[in-house]
Amino acid sequence: MENPADEPSARWKRLPSWLLTQTSQHAHRLVADGFSAAGARGYHFRLLATLEEFGPASQAALGRRSGIHVSDMVATINELAERELVERAPDPADRRRNVISLTTAGKRQLRRLEKQLADRQDELLAPLSRDERAQLTELLAKLLDHHNGRTGAPDESWR
């Protein structure tokens, strides 16, 4: 017979903060594993996706648009440039600045990462219906918008 004292406390196991934290840990692991299987990290996805959405940009603009801190931006660009997924070129308007562009290989890598991300979202949300997934996403976005607006905190997920 199982010992009732070994069960998690009912007082905290259904608290929203506990559930969000535990689910977040699973989500982070799933996404990191998916990106790792494609030889990437979350910052790689964010930078490639930002370049595809907005086009070539300076490192500073990419940092603002992707939410990647300037101290992490140079290393991320270096990693992607070494793999020829992005290109650096002097900005014709200001030679002190570089403009970062997405390469054809970068677009292919972005498609692989999007596939990994979609698969991991499906794995994370497997027990939910399509409508429940949409509702959960809407509620999480509402919470995040509220707290980001209150604190001014940037989105630092998917490092």
Rank of each mutant, 00 (worst) to 15 (best):
A57C: 06
R112D: 15
G42Y: 07
G39F: 11
L136W: 13
S36M: 08
A40H: 06
G106Y: 06
G106L: 05
A81P: 04
A134S: 06
F45E: 06
K142E: 13
L102Q: 05
L143V: 07
E79P: 00
H44M: 04
T137N: 14
L139E: 15
R83C: 09
R111F: 09
A57I: 01
K107C: 02
R95M: 05
E138P: 01
G39H: 07
R96V: 01
I68H: 10
D131R: 11
L110V: 02
G55E: 06
F35I: 00
E79L: 09
H147I: 04
E87L: 15
P127W: 10
P92I: 13
R111E: 14
D131A: 12
L47T: 01
L139G: 02
P90L: 11
Q121G: 02
L144P: 01
A49T: 02
D122I: 00
A75L: 09
R41V: 07
V70H: 15
L128M: 15
G55D: 06
P127V: 05
N78A: 14
Q135H: 10
Q121E: 13
K107Q: 08
E84I: 00
Q135G: 00
E138F: 13
R108I: 03
R130I: 01
S58E: 08
E79D: 13
F45V: 00
R130G: 00
N78Q: 14
V74Q: 09
D33W: 01
Q59A: 12
D33K: 05
R83I: 04
L144K: 08
V70P: 02
T103M: 06
Q121W: 10
G63E: 09
H147K: 04
R108L: 13
A57E: 05
R88I: 02
R96I: 00
Y43T: 06
D91M: 01
N148T: 09
M73N: 05
E79Q: 10
E79M: 05
E138R: 15
F45C: 00
K142Y: 06
E82L: 15
F45Q: 02
A61T: 11
E52H: 15
A105T: 07
G34Y: 08
G67E: 07
A93H: 10
D72N: 12
Q109K: 14
R96N: 12
N78S: 14
R97W: 02
E82P: 01
F35D: 03
D145G: 12
E87N: 15
I68R: 03
A57W: 02
S71R: 11
T103A: 07
A37K: 10
E52S: 15
V99L: 15
L136V: 10
A75H: 07
A93Q: 14
L125Q: 09
